Amino acid sequence: MKMRIKQSYICKDIEQYDINTNLVSTHVPAVGDVAVFEVLQIGKHKTIQGAEKRMQTILPGDYIMAAFGTRYATAQFEGYVPEGICPEYHILGAGGTVGLVHSSHSKFAQAGPTTLKLAGWITNAHQNVINTIAANQHLQKPFTGGMGHATRVILSVGSSMDSGKTTTAAKMVQGLSKAGYNTAFIKLTGTVFTKDADLNFDHGATTVADFGMLGYPSTYMCSLQQLLNAYESLMHLVNAAAQAFVVIEIADGIYQRETEMLLRHRPFMNTVDAVVYSAGDSLSAIHGYEMLRSLHIVPAAICGLFTASPLLVQEVKERLYAPVLTIEQMAAGELLQYIERPVYEMAS
């Protein structure tokens, strides 16, 4: 089969391969399985991120290389890997995550997802379908928590998608870096796309890493052990022991499956030195803070979109005894004075 293939970011490490069309009607996809797809109709995704991070325009009739995965994005798509063979599939994420959309935000109701047809499976010399997670198994480290204790870990969590936690993390990195501290950034959960890691690198991070480097098209529906191992592995990739701080962002909100699992897992949280919570408005700031306190987690500071409004900041300050920092204050390094506070309060 001769075709020009636009290779998505999740497939960046795949170089030697065959395209097997014989398996199209028999192989049931699994998370991480790689295939070539023909673009049928353009919907929400008009571009995909390529292996070199450049955004590539896609058109009907194009062929793309991508991997099957899931997605949880309250402002975009909820999607899953199908349990059987389907006539069409959907782009779930611009980094190359493909599956079937289960639900979507109403703003995409008219456009819908970009639809694809499976053209062939990407196989190795033994005619086995290449899997991005299996191909990066050599990078996987079992969770011990030791790497977390080799540095100071700051966790950036938020009330929901688009609550400002990525910007908060980037401004944290900027402030810590300007204060003279080597600071790395890790995106631990989400759907593969390098924008957040790139933003933090541009804000001064010495090095960045995300779950996509381990071959995960997304982390939605991963087991707790997979998440913990990914954490340990990414800490190795950023050489945590050589960093004064490692800022870690966990995607979506504190009620999201993987986020809540990690927040409730004491061995993971015992490696965290400070938690910064971001929220979109005053009510979510207050309720989210109280939810974290119910887990005996004391945020070092609260930030996020709501801090753009002095009135919302005032509402929060009148109801919570907690530091509220704007992104300008984060960028100025003011978080440093608050991160000596313990992450856990004593349970009564």
Rank of each mutant, 00 (worst) to 15 (best):
T151A: 14
Y9I: 08
G43Y: 04
S159V: 10
E260Y: 04
M3Y: 11
I85Y: 10
G96D: 02
V31A: 07
G180I: 12
V275G: 06
S159K: 08
L118K: 13
L224G: 03
N270C: 07
Q41H: 11
Y216Q: 00
L237H: 05
F193A: 13
L237W: 06
K317R: 01
Y181S: 15
A285K: 00
D202L: 14
P82S: 08
H45A: 09
N200D: 11
Q329C: 04
A301E: 00
L325R: 00
G79E: 02
I302S: 00
G204W: 07
L335W: 04
R293D: 09
M55G: 13
P60S: 02
G215T: 02
K165I: 09
L188Y: 01
A119K: 15
D281C: 12
L176H: 05
G304N: 00
G84R: 11
T57M: 12
Y277N: 01
V192K: 02
L335K: 00
A66Y: 01
A111N: 13
Q127R: 09
R266L: 10
A135L: 11
M1C: 08
T74W: 05
F77C: 07
E340V: 08
F185W: 12
S348R: 14
A308M: 06
E318Q: 05
D196S: 10
G253E: 03
M291Q: 13
L224Y: 02
K2V: 14
S8R: 01
G180W: 12
K6P: 01
L283E: 11
H27T: 10
V272G: 09
Q243S: 15
G304E: 02
T47P: 02
V98F: 07
F108T: 05
N229R: 08
A73S: 15
H287E: 14
N22V: 08
T57N: 12
